[in-house]
Design a protein around this nucleic acid. Structure first.
Lengths: 109, 109
DNA sequence: TTGAAAGGCAACCAATTGGTTGCAATTCTG
DNA sequence: CAGAATTGCAACCAATTGGTTGCCTTTCAA
């Protein structure tokens, strides 16, 4: 995939991570285990429905998946999208690192 | 700074990057050079004011800075916030990598 | 000096977001 | 079975977002 397409592919993931509550949810899910909604809502200062909405946002960009088990909805983190976003930022950093280095060199030459 | 505070500190940066137009602007600014608004707006399918608003969003989270020179506003990328966000994602990845590894080990033991 | 270029500011608008409440449905458990 | 737990769905709401247009100011250049 081209760089630019990976960029626009990562934008929705960044948007999903751009909320403190969702970042907290991702953090709680980072143990790799399955968590029910009630479990994830615990201690957060908003209603269960609010948490549900945030989980759906994360699900829509593929950061988490959901599996219904009995009366529970169990959410699990899905590594790939975040890894892609991470790699994108890593390459972006390298890009301006090198650019700045070239600028410095051309000034000092 | 604690991990959780770095997380909530990165949330606004993620939010700022969670838009295709702004991601494109960051990309154009990744050459480390200064760019005027008119220059950055070129080729984008929205008005100059639209671009200005996006630049302000990026400026508010510290991703870019602005310097007025003559009649131009020159924007420059500012590495730090993106680097912080990158590091946060890197640590998050490591975190669930290790967690998943521990889970796998405990299942197979 | 006069016109064009670059940008700031404010008002306005539709769509989205983040949140709520109420209620119905399913599933577990004593 | 009866009640509690867990969730889904829909309606509703205020605030934010992403975008526009119109107009004014500053600055550059012929």
């Amino acid at each position: 995939m081209s760089n630019v397409n990976e960029a626009i592919g990562s934008a929705p993931v960044f948007a999903a991570l751009g909320d403190i509550t969702r970042l907290e949810l991702v953090s709680r899910l980072s143990d790799g285990k399955q968590h029910s909604i009630a479990q994830l809502a615990e201690g957060l200062d908003l209603t269960r429905q609010g948490v549900t909405k945030h989980l759906h946002v994360l699900q829509n960009v593929g950061v988490v998946t959901c599996e219904r088990v009995g009366r529970e909805s169990r959410f699990t983190i899905r590594p790939d999208p975040i890894a892609k976003a991470r790699d994108y930022l890593a390459r972006a950093s390298t890009q301006w690192d090198e650019a700045v280095e070239r600028l410095r060199a051309s000034v000092e030459e």
